[in-house]
């Protein structure tokens, strides 16, 4: 079963002569547990695509089905709940809450849903992320790599079916960037998550099971870079 199914997705901004097609008739499906990289020049529609997948922005045309649910047929309010429970986001700029410490930032999606975070699980997660000694620190007291690891923790806390990452390594040096990608790969394996990473770093793309190449808002090619190893 495809966990993500995109059909004829289009997005345009403006009208008439100022109309810009950010995405044009993009269709593809992603299997559960796949690690997919989306590459393309800036302005190719990568981020627009990610926003559509995450239910952050309405498409002009076409459908996004996630877990069999037509994302844009849901009511705005239901979509917000859906997003919180099914999708984890990781951004280039980390987007942590500055007044919450590491632990609180990681537990945020659970608290928003009025769930009691499991202490042991969150603790384990924080240790894996190498943040144990910093768990009471505020984001401003952390390095970029550490902040991005907190963001990964936040995306994994709910173990959502899908993790969407927008240039997660964009602000990091190669060592920290590699760590972020490896953590995402571990998550794919451990939690059967589906990860979609937007990147222009070819080293990141090389780590993916599959690479979607966007150009001028259109899907140029779809390469399965590695066979599913046993």
């Amino acid at each position: 079963m495809n966990v993500i199914q995109v059909d004829g997705l289009s997005k345009s901004y403006g009208t008439g002569s100022t109309k810009v097609n950010a995405l044009h008739q993009v269709s593809f499906g992603v299997n559960q547990g796949e690690f997919v990289a989306v590459v393309g020049a800036s302005g190719s529609g990568k981020s627009t695509l990610l926003h559509m997948l995450g239910g952050l922005d309405k498409p002009t045309d076409g459908y996004v089905h996630i877990d069999g649910e037509n994302l844009y047929a849901l009511k705005e309010k239901d979509r917000a709940v859906f997003r919180r429970r099914k999708i984890g986001f990781i951004f280039q700029a980390y987007n942590l809450i500055p007044v919450l410490n590491v632990e609180e930032n990681i537990q945020l999606p659970l608290l928003l849903d009025h769930r009691q975070p499991d202490k042991a699980y969150v603790d384990d997660l924080i240790r894996t992320l190498g943040l144990h000694e910093r768990r009471k620190h505020l984001p401003s007291e952390l390095s970029g790599g550490q902040q991005q690891r907190v963001a990964i923790g936040r995306a994994l806390a709910y173990r959502p079916a899908i993790v969407l990452a927008d240039e997660p390594t964009g602000n990091l040096d190669s060592a920290n960037g590699r760590e972020v990608i490896e953590l995402l790969k571990l998550a794919v394996r451990q939690y059967h998550q589906t990860v979609i990473v937007i990147t222009h770093d070819m080293n990141v793309a090389a780590e993916a099971d599959r690479v979607l190449n966007l150009q001028d808002g259109m899907l140029l090619n779809d390469t399965h870079s590695r066979g599913k190893a046993l």
Binding site: T128, G130, R159, L186, A187, Y191
Partner: peptide, 12 residues
């Protein structure tokens, strides 16, 4: 690549 601390068991 081995983690210092194994990722906690999850959905599996």
């Amino acid at each position: 690549t081995l983690p210092h601390h194994k990722l906690p068991a999850g959905a599996n």
